[in-house]
Design a binder for these strands. Structure first.
Length: 304
DNA sequence: CTCATGCCCTGCTGGC
DNA sequence: TGCCAGCAGGGCATGA
């Protein structure tokens, strides 16, 4: 469940503890963790050893360690995605835990450990290239990921235009990482409540200012969560696990089914959304009024 | 091309 | 008590 604010909290912690360190040994403990590294597990391990961590960077929900090798100006990216349950820890001893998927010994004697219960996360090595906005370098494999709202290449009017050209629901658009990155199910629901907009509103029917408004709401709610995540940060234990911090945050709708809307008091409802959930206040977030064409394509399960 | 859906995976919860 | 369905959900392959 880590979304942009949680990943940024992890990035900061990692940057503090591993910047400047050289990787001495590396081990892959589960093949699935390197499934995106097509050259394989042993290639991955061999190629990170001896590299120095120059910085820890992030775009949306992706992290990468910028690696330099002795005598080479060219940098490589060690990409990491936390998936749903990924955690990084920097610790003094090698971890003995069933969920360790990858670990590396650093030149200060400490260990960088990646744990992941549900194995949706992973790591890969990739070359760094100039991104499409020409404002920064990103791993080649992440070129399709759009800038997140905290990057210099993020251009809200452009994102708003692209969003309104799409033929889809506004919540799907917010979750589209090629449009704007970093927003997941939780912050999408929070942004839509703030806007306020029903998740099934069609992007083509939004005015430019409404589209800009929901993007701004998403940016604000994530910025506030970064501040909260940063304050509860523990030095040696680089926590990433969605559980600590996440649900302690001030969420207005997510997970609050049947509880009162903080704005109007009406009960928060949970709507089915492609095998997951959307939490909404149906009084603040009015469902779209369907036109003839949408009604015809509803196939009988239309709202009353 | 765009958009929607299903799958990957594990541990916990709730119903019977 | 034990079993199993359901749920959590990001990203990508696939099909429409």
């Amino acid at each position: 469940m880590p979304e942009l604010p949680e990943v940024e909290t992890v990035r900061k912690g990692l940057a503090e503890h591993v910047t400047g360190r050289t990787i001495i040994t590396a081990s892959v403990h589960h093949p699935r963790v390197v499934r995106r590294h097509l050259a394989g597990a042993s290639h991955f391990s061999q190629h990170v050893v001896g590299k120095r961590i120059q910085s820890v960077e992030r775009r949306g929900k992706y992290l990468w360690f910028s690696l330099e090798s002795q005598g080479h100006a060219q940098l490589e990216g060690l990409i990491a995605h936390l998936g749903m349950s990924g955690q990084f820890r920097v610790q003094d001893e090698r971890a003995d835990h069933p969920h360790v998927r990858f670990d590396a010994e650093l030149d200060d004697g400490r260990w960088l450990v990646f744990l992941d219960q549900r194995t949706f996360g992973g790591v890969a090595l990739d070359e760094l290239v100039t991104d499409t906005t020409k404002t920064r370098t990103v791993p080649h494999a992440l070129r399709h990921i759009a800038p997140d709202p905290f990057e210099p290449g993020y251009d809200p009017p452009s994102v708003s235009r692209r969003m309104r050209r799409k033929k889809t629901e506004v919540k799907r658009a917010l979750l589209d990482q090629t449009l704007v990155s970093g927003i997941g199910n939780i912050y999408a629901d929070e942004a839509l409540w703030r806007a306020p907009l029903h998740p099934q509103r069609l992007t083509q029917r939004l005015t430019a200012s409404t589209a800009m408004g929901v993007l701004e709401a998403a940016t604000n709610v994530m910025a506030e969560a970064i501040v909260e995540g940063g304050t509860s940060f523990d030095a040696l234990y680089v926590n990433v696990n969605g559980e600590s911090g996440y649900f302690g945050r001030s969420l207005a709708v997510y997970g609050r089914e049947d509880e009162p809307c903080l704005r109007c008091g009406a009960p928060i409802r949970r709507l089915a959304f492609t095998n997951r959930s959307s939490y909404v206040c149906l009084r603040c977030q009015r469902p779209p009024r369907l036109g003839t064409s949408e009604r015809l394509s509803q196939k009988g399960d239309a709202a009353p």
